[in-house]
């Protein structure tokens, strides 16, 4: 499969104005303005292949949305080359945007005070979709997103979840080759989140749509894709499989042990005692210790009498938190 998105040494700088604090600072700012250059993206390079779903992750302010905006032709980078679907997004904007769909989770692209169907019909005109094809696509979208009865209501009367489903449908009416989703599940309830994920999977499989998704919800990534790009402070930190990231940290276990009686001191070979209170202790394995239930029990029961124990593997969110910490984000 060929690369549909190529990002080469993309830099984006923003100029922000600084002001000293207080009234005096405000007055000084009237005459002399100081500014600072912020590097939102720093030599960003990556490639995305046709038909992939790629998770684009990173903490707040890392440059995710800036990247999405450059990819959708909204922003012009300060330097660097980018080719998407054969176009340079910000140069061939009008031609290029016909082949992409974008959903920004926190903004709306449909018209506020008219029924959703009217918004869709306007999109049909804007993208010049033949009536027959439009009807066919719309039927499929209605069917998977279950938005049939929402179409005749004005957007302002819909709930957040209903709105998001309609936004998704709106972004896909012209069957784009690439779909950018910027935090599509933000603020959605569990059921709607699942529906959105199923939908993304469906269009990726059936329409071969390439999907680039930014999110803070790691379960989104877990459910949708194995390919992630991690960005922090404007730099690409990791580009590869999500499984690898998880395994790197999944070895770390937290074991809570309840003892029969109170011991003064607890020492287990290969484990760290994180906390110890009365007859309950929390242990963590050393990075080099591979956790094994049988071996662990043997070691600990040699010295102590125990009542119960439980083992916790770290969650996906914790993996990410660790990762951010490791990269000093």
């Amino acid at each position: 499969m060929s690369n549909i998105i190529e990002f080469n040494n993309i830099n984006k700088e923003f100029k922000i104005f600084l002001r000293d604090k207080g009234l005096w600072g405000a007055i000084k700012g009237l005459f002399k303005r100081k500014h600072k250059l912020i590097k939102a993206l720093n030599n960003v390079c990556f490639e995305i292949q046709e038909g992939d779903i790629v998770g684009y992750i990173g903490p707040n302010g890392a440059g995710k949305s800036t990247t999405i905006k450059i990819m959708s032709g909204i922003l012009t980078p300060t330097s660097g080359q980018c080719k998407i679907n054969g176009y340079i997004p910000w140069k061939d904007r009008k031609k290029y945007v016909k082949s992409i769909g974008v959903v920004f989770g926190q903004r709306s692209q449909l018209w506020w005070d008219v029924p959703v169907r009217d918004s869709f019909e306007l999109l049909k005109d804007i993208y010049n979709i033949p009536t027959e094809e439009y009807q066919k696509t719309l039927d499929i979208l209605i069917d998977i997103l279950k938005i049939g009865e929402l179409l005749d209501r004005p957007l302002r009367q819909l709930s957040l979840g209903q709105k998001m489903k309609c936004e998704l449908a709106g972004a896909l009416l012209h069957k784009p080759k690439i779909l950018f989703l910027d935090e599509p599940t933000i603020g959605l309830d569990a059921v709607t989140k699942l529906a959105v994920r199923d939908f993304v999977k469906y269009i990726n499989k059936e329409w071969k749509t390439t999907v680039i998704l930014t999110t803070h919800d790691m379960t989104d990534i877990d459910a949708l894709t194995n390919k992630v790009i991690l960005i922090g402070k404007g730099k690409i930190l990791y580009n590869g499989s999500f499984e690898y990231l998880k395994n790197k940290y999944a070895n770390e276990k937290t074991i809570t042990v309840e003892f029969l009686k109170e011991y003064d001191k607890i020492e287990v070979e290969g484990y760290n005692v994180v906390s110890h209170d009365k007859n309950v202790a929390v242990l963590k394995n050393f990075p080099q210790t591979i956790f094994n239930t049988q071996k662990f029990l043997q070691t600990i029961t040699q010295k102590y009498e125990i009542v119960d124990f439980s083992v916790n593997t770290i969650s996906v969110d914790e993996v990410l938190a660790k990762l951010y910490k490791e990269f000093n984000l």
Binding site: S72, V97, F104, I126
Partner: peptide
């Protein structure tokens, strides 16, 4: 003011 103009940019229109 709020930046919703970005949706105008992603239309194949002027």
């Amino acid at each position: 003011v709020k930046g919703d103009v970005c949706y105008k940019f992603i239309r194949p229109l002027n």
